[in-house]
Every structure is written in C-alpha cells, then in structure tokens.
Design a protein around this nucleic acid. Structure first.
Lengths: 236, 236
DNA sequence: GGATCGTCAAGAGCAGTGCTCTCTTTTTTT
DNA sequence: AAAAAAAGAGAGCACTGCTCTTGACGATCC
C-alpha cells in the first residue's frame, strides 16, 4: 500500500515540479505580475481549475517560486564561496558579490521577487525565512573566518555603534560568531551595500549613466571589503 | 476665447489632479498592482471609460504617479538639506539620508514604485529621468561643497578605481564637480548603500532581526560618510 | 471480485480587470 | 444659431483569480 500511495504521490510531485517550472518560465518572461495560473495551465494542457488541486492560490505558487529562488541564489553563493581558498577572505567576499550580481542579472524577475518590492497583496509566509538566509549564512562565515584568522582589521575612522544596538548586534552575531558590535555594523553596511548596488543596476538607476558596470561593481565591493576590514587585495 | 478655453482646461487640470490624488490614495493602500482605473473611476463617480479621456492607459497614470513621487522625495531631500548649516557636510549628508528613509517609510508603496522592482509590463518613459535626479543632485552638491571646502579627506585603504571607469566617473562628476574618480566611486558606494539600507528595512529583510532600525541606519550612514571622507562628526 | 471512497480533471460561472468602441450630451468655437 | 470639439455613458471583448459542481479514474477494504 505504501508503494501505491507513493505512486500517486510521485505523480503529484512530478506535476508540482512541472507547474513550478512552467511558472518560473513565465516569471522570467513576464515578471511576477504577469504570472497567470490560467496561462500556466494552458501550457500544461490542463484546465485552469485543475491547478488549484496543487496550489490553492496564486500566492501559494508565488511562495513556492520564492523559496526556490532563495535556494537557487543561496546555492549559487555557496558554490562561489566554495571555489575559493579558505584563507582568501577578500576573494571569497568578492566571489559572493559576483555570484549575487550574476544570479540577479541572469534571473532579474526572480531576483526582483526576492529583493525587490514586495508583490502587492502578497505577504511572505514564514516558510521563506529559512531559505532566505542561505546566502547571508555564507557571508557571515566569511567574516567569522577572517576574524578567527586575525585577518580582520577594520580601519577606525568613525565612532563605535551606540550601546542601544548591542541587542541587535547580538542577534546578527549568530551568523558571524566572535566579532565585535562594530564589525557587525560594518558587516551590515557591506551586505546592504552589495544589494544596493545590484538593485540600482538591475532596476535601472544606472541607465544612461554607468556603462562599465561589472568593473564599478567590483571596485565598490572592494571598497566595502576594506570598510569591513578585510585584507586590501585578494590572495594577499 | 483664451479665458473660455482656459475654463475647460482648468476643469481638465483639476480632474487630472483629482484622479492622481485618488490614485495615489489607492496606491498607498493597495500598492501598485492593486491600482485599478475602474476603482479610481468609481471613487470619482465616473464611469470607467471616462478616465481614458485623461490617461490613455494605466501605465500613463502610473507614470504620472512616479513623476510625482520623484518630485516629492526630491523636494523632501532638498528641504532636509536646506535646513542644515552649509558647512556641516556630514550633517547635511545625514539629513538627506534621514529624509530619504523617512519619506520611504511614510510612502512605502510609492517608494517601491520608484526604487523597488519595476512594475511588470511597465517601462519607465524618458519623462521620469529628470525628476528622478532631484535627490541625487542634492547629494552631489554636498560632496562637491565638501570637496571645495577642503573637508573631504577619504581614508586611503583600498586601491584607486581602475582606469576603465574614468569615463563613467566623468559622467557622474557632472553632479559633483571637482572631485576625483576615487571620490566619485566612493560617492556611488555611499549613495547605493543608503538605498540598500532603506530597501532592506522597507522590503522586510530586517524583519525579526533588527529592531533599532533608526539607530542602525544612522550609524551605518555615518560609516558611509567616513568612507566618502566626510568629517567624522556632524558640526565638527 | 465488487463495492466504496478519496483524488483529480473538466467545465460553467462569478466578479473583477484594462481597454475599445459607439452614442449621446455638453461646451466651446465660428 | 450652426458647426466643431470635448467629455460622459454604456456596452462589449478578452482576460484574470477563484469557486462550485459533475463525472471519471484508481486505490482500498470486505
């Protein structure tokens, strides 16, 4: 009985996979707002109402795509980090930055779904916060590793973070154990700066202004690396 | 004839204003995707097709809202900057940062329209690039003023920007005359970092993680200020 | 083996959307 | 006053998300 039930379940799982695949294709071409259950159903040779057997609502389909997206960019970041020498902290940071940017440029609509404005009327459920952390976990490990190796020497040029931020810093420190509140704050600057750059490039703020985007991006990521206190050059 | 013609035109202008006002209210509550011409028409006691006399398409209405939004945030930034002592460069930078953040928090959906993911199927026309620059013009003037006053001393901690970026730097330098390529690049880091922070806060990336958001924001903006080379403390 | 029950596809239908057309009314111009 | 321009009203098209009912298929139990 277990086998037979699994047979059904397997068909179901396969259909769910096919639906999300087609939906992702639609997402890539038309964006989140253009994602239509009926169109997906048409592509599958199904009638629209049948889709609702698998996804109770359009938002549930979106949620599935969002989780997949977080996992995809997270995996991409993990692979990029894994391809670097463990003690090349700046290189690992740069690799992570380029992985984020490249993935974003390759999947603009999916990226917009993850890091752009929330889809109107859609509220991200709790299921998304786990996979959402995959990329930042990698980032935290880089900082933490550099700190442990004694290679983190942030330039002192601005006041330490105010006392009131210590509880927040403590929360973030779970991702990057062993670093000071100051480094936590700098880490947030760099991380948000990374996504700020990607957002500007992807959402059109650089149009008609910046042409050598990859070079500017890399240079700016190096600036942020030095703000964190990472060694000035990769492989140094 | 001029007066009579103006009479009609005045009614027309008034109606356009009323449409955009109602549309903005809908935008504030339902977001860009929930903006419905029919709903706006209903609120005005009009029939839906009549709206098309004033805005040929939903996208044109969106464009009007976007231009208004850029002007609103730009004006907000201008006022914030104008409220500071001219030689308090770090204070002016901080004021601009807070103006952007406050406006974003007060008008989240409008902000998302400007700096979030592009609305699906909507392509921003050229009309939007003028007003879009209002805030960054203020920013550029702060940097430029600080440079002219000899108060811009960027810490040297990372390599200068590569040669290939000089043409892009030249374009950006129109906003901040008199500064080096290095400062231009740092300026872009800070500017994108500002919006990166606001995006993270507004789009939910800080949920369940950061609680003292204003304090963290201000501290991080000070970090970025020191990266640019602005004096470490306001009013110094 | 046959009855039963859960799962699924199909279709009709509801309320809503952007947008286009035609027709009538109102206002301006001549 | 007549002609012309502008605006409102309404019907209609194609589309959307979603719900409900109907009928068929397949696994399960006696």
């Amino acid at each position: 009985m277990n086998a037979s039930r699994t047979a059904r379940e397997r068909v179901r799982a396969e259909l769910i996979r096919e639906i999300t695949d087609i939906a992702r294709r639609h997402l890539a071409t038309d964006g989140a707002g253009g994602l239509s259950l009926r169109a997906v159903a048409r592509d599958m040779g199904m009638v629209s109402s049948a889709i609702y057997r698998y996804f109770p609502s359009r938002d549930d389909l979106l949620t599935a795509l969002i989780i997949d997206g977080y996992n995809a960019i997270g995996e991409s970041v993990e692979i990029a980090d894994a391809g670097c020498a463990r003690d090349d902290f700046t290189g690992r940071w740069l690799a992570v930055c380029h992985a984020v940017r490249t993935w974003a440029l390759d999947h603009p609509h999916e990226y917009a779904l993850l890091y752009g404005s929330p889809v109107p009327g859609y509220q991200a459920p709790e299921d998304t916060i786990g996979p959402a952390a995959r990329d930042v976990v990698v980032y935290g490990r880089i900082i933490s590793d550099a700190q442990a190796a004694g290679r983190l020497t942030p330039p002192d040029m601005c006041p330490a973070p105010p006392e009131v931020l210590s509880s927040d810093a403590e929360a973030v420190r779970q991702l990057m154990p062993g670093v000071s509140d100051d480094v936590v704050a700098r880490g947030i600057v760099a991380w948000t700066g990374l996504f700020g750059m990607v957002n500007f490039e992807l959402f059109g703020q650089f149009n008609n202004v910046i042409t050598h985007r990859r070079e500017l991006f890399e240079h700016n990521m190096l600036s942020l690396a030095s703000l964190i206190g990472l060694p000035p050059t990769p492989r140094a």
